[in-house]
Design a protein around this nucleic acid. Sequence first.
RNA 1: GGAGAGAUGGCAGAGCGGUUUAAUGCGGCGGUCUUGAAAACCGUUGUGGGUAAUUCCACCGGGGGUUCGAAUCCCUCUCUCUCCGCCA
Length: 423
Amino acid sequence: MLSINYIRENKEEAIERLAVKNFDARELIEQAISIDEARRKTQNEMDTLLNASNQLAKQIGDLFKAGKAAEANDLKNKSGALKEETATLKNRLDELEKEQTDILIKLPNTPHSSVPKGKTANENINVYEWGEIPVLGADAKPHWELTSQYDIIDFELGNKLTGAGFPVYKGKGAKLQRALINFFLDKATAVGYKEIQPPILVNEASGFGTGQLPDKEGQMYHVGMDNLYLIPTAEVPVTNILRDVILREDELPVKMTAYTPCFRREAGSYGKDVRGLNRLHQFDKVEIVQVQHPDRSYDTLEEMKEHVSGLLKALELPFRILRLCGGDMSFASALTFDFEVYSAAQQKWLEVSSVSNFETFQANRLKLRFREKEGKPQAAHTLNGSALALPRIVAALLENNQTDLGIKIPKVLIPYTGFDYID
RNA sequence: GGAGAGAUGGCAGAGCGGUUUAAUGCGGCGGUCUUGAAAACCGUUGUGGGUAAUUCCACCGGGGGUUCGAAUCCCUCUCUCUCCGCCA
């Protein structure tokens, strides 16, 4: 959520920036500003009346104590009229505040100045590439054939237990999942991220805090009886740890990492993109989250990018980094880098991580602030990234590393898997 | 699931209709003292909103009500704790 103060003071800048996300904000912003003016005027009027009625109540109290009941009763009548007026203003004020919030939550985050214009993923900018694209033989298989050949991931069994998009990992496939999770967590904690095991069901307030609710309701599984949501990413519970918190400046940056399963309804997805591990309803992911001082958040974004790059290099997977264009960015993000690995048998780039700076957008919703030695609390910057999402990593590993002897496990994982081939 | 108790400032904990502009203690910050530190003493210490500004306004779990006046009384919701039952 953008703050009304920012909008009021930087109206044209906000409109221009939102245009980079192909969002025409002029009308909403004009409305927000005029509601804000009315809101402040009403607040002022109400405060004046409340002040008068507070004074009156004091006088009445004093008169009763002095035994002057008759005079006190005269004042009581006056007080009644004030009260009615105040009630009217209070109602008006509540309405205005609600209208204002309703508008503010419709505005996406303003993109950073480095975000390129563009409508679709085709206009993302390739900023970095690493590794060699493997050349496979003619008999190379896509991962969904390899998984059944080695009996490590069973999609059919998942259909039986739950439905499409809920695969069952078996044997070395299950062990590989555990190895990747441990490897990712170890790498994150080694550089100062505190490991968190959060709940994977969250309430509405948490969903609102990170921006999933109210608009992206259909993306999450909802447990109606208790009004809870299955998390689409660990970002939701982990970032909400700091909801309604005021940090000291010396507590920044806060670095947290968490492994969780993630649940996404993916309504509207269909076709070949959902084949095999490419798009699931339940998948595993290790997430990294940072809360940082606004002056340093872009350095932190670089640091997180480096961290994710390091993981992919260690896994020996060819990858590229994309700077997302305005049209492909999420509602809440100010700057996002996507990481894609090359999956050689499908001959496709698969997104395995997305690293974003949300600046104060989530912090404003979360009321996540920090206090400098002097002055008022101010909104902190929140950042997060996948480090990493497992299924497409597994897809690329299986496809790229297929050999006559089986699937070759990258060196760094062998201590975690305890085997060097899936065969 | 049954019964009971409770929700107050960073924490602990008073207050139960008008000396509350929320006591007191701890913690935090500033100062005195000290070579430095500790101790002691003094001062200070929440959030949001409004205004040109102020002895301005709101906030004692959320919402509603009674009253001239509510942290305090009433209703309601949520949550927490204790005991019992069930259970990984």
